[in-house]
């Protein structure tokens, strides 16, 4: 389980996060939803210790992040985390070199799944394909938790569909996933848990299926209630 406890973050005088708390379980897809600029990306960065927090605590399976935690959790940011001049094969080689949890078979499978050519240079790829390579590099790690920042934004329709397919496949099964998005649209049926974020705070944390079952409300219904009142 990933536990985010009362985290606060300031940029200069501006408070971006004002005490955000939520949990994300293994085997579930947790979706952080909020408008652009409400601090969703900052939360993911904070979980990965890519930016310091001013207050609060983040625990991964009950422990604060250590260097070895990166064999257990990975982050797929919205931009590719490899050098543009590298070929896909070289990027895969780099990952294999540094991570003991790299799963070569899965990586090969993902290449096929996304119909990528491993001899292509990253800089020559379309936006959609770059996003797929980025996803491949993260998903081919045998980690328990995967964080993804806006995996669907700015990507063509067909790539979106292919990426959405990842979420219904064994590539995600049994892992804990946190994704951020500013539009829930096409993934409403994919997610287990919703964390609504607004103005640096968690305004609501709920289970999507429970909201439908107990209140007959869609995720968007709940959002509408929270935002419009």
């Amino acid at each position: 389980m990933i536990e985010v406890k009362e985290i606060e973050k300031k940029y200069g005088r501006k408070k971006i996060l004002k005490g955000v708390s939520f949990t994300a379980n293994k085997g579930e897809i947790t979706c952080l939803i909020g408008l652009n600029g409400v601090g969703k990306t900052t939360i993911l960065n904070a979980i990965m210790a890519l930016t310091p927090i001013n207050k609060g605590q983040i625990l991964i399976d009950g422990e604060p992040l250590k260097e070895k935690t990166f064999e257990k959790i990975t982050f797929i940011p919205d931009a590719i985390t490899m050098l543009p001049q590298m070929k896909i094969a070289e990027a895969m080689e780099f990952m294999k070199d540094f991570y003991t949890c790299w799963n070569q078979d899965r990586a090969t499978e993902l290449l096929g799944f996304f119909r990528l050519n491993k001899d292509d240079r990253i800089s020559s790829l379309s936006k959609g394909n770059t996003a797929k390579v980025n996803l491949l590099l993260g998903l081919a790690l045998d980690v328990d938790y995967v964080l993804m920042d806006e995996p669907f934004s700015g990507i063509d329709m067909f790539s979106r569909e292919e990426i959405a397919n990842v979420f219904t496949s064994h590539l995600i099964e049994n892992r804990g996933v946190i994704i951020t998005t500013h539009e829930i649209g096409d993934i409403e049926h994919l997610i287990d848990k919703v964390v609504l974020i607004d103005n640096g705070l968690v305004t609501k944390e709920f289970n999507a299926e429970e909201a439908r079952e107990n209140e007959g409300k869609s995720v968007i219904d709940v959002m509408r209630e929270v935002y419009i009142g």
Binding site: M48, A49, L50, E67, K68, T69, F70, E71, T74, F75, P77, A79, I80, T81, M82, L83, P84, F98, Y99, T100
Partner: peptide
């Protein structure tokens, strides 16, 4: 620029 390689470097399972 567009390069975010620092993400990868900081996420390597080794001491920073």
């Amino acid at each position: 620029g567009k390069n975010t390689f620092i993400y990868r470097l900081l996420m390597l399972p080794t001491t920073r």
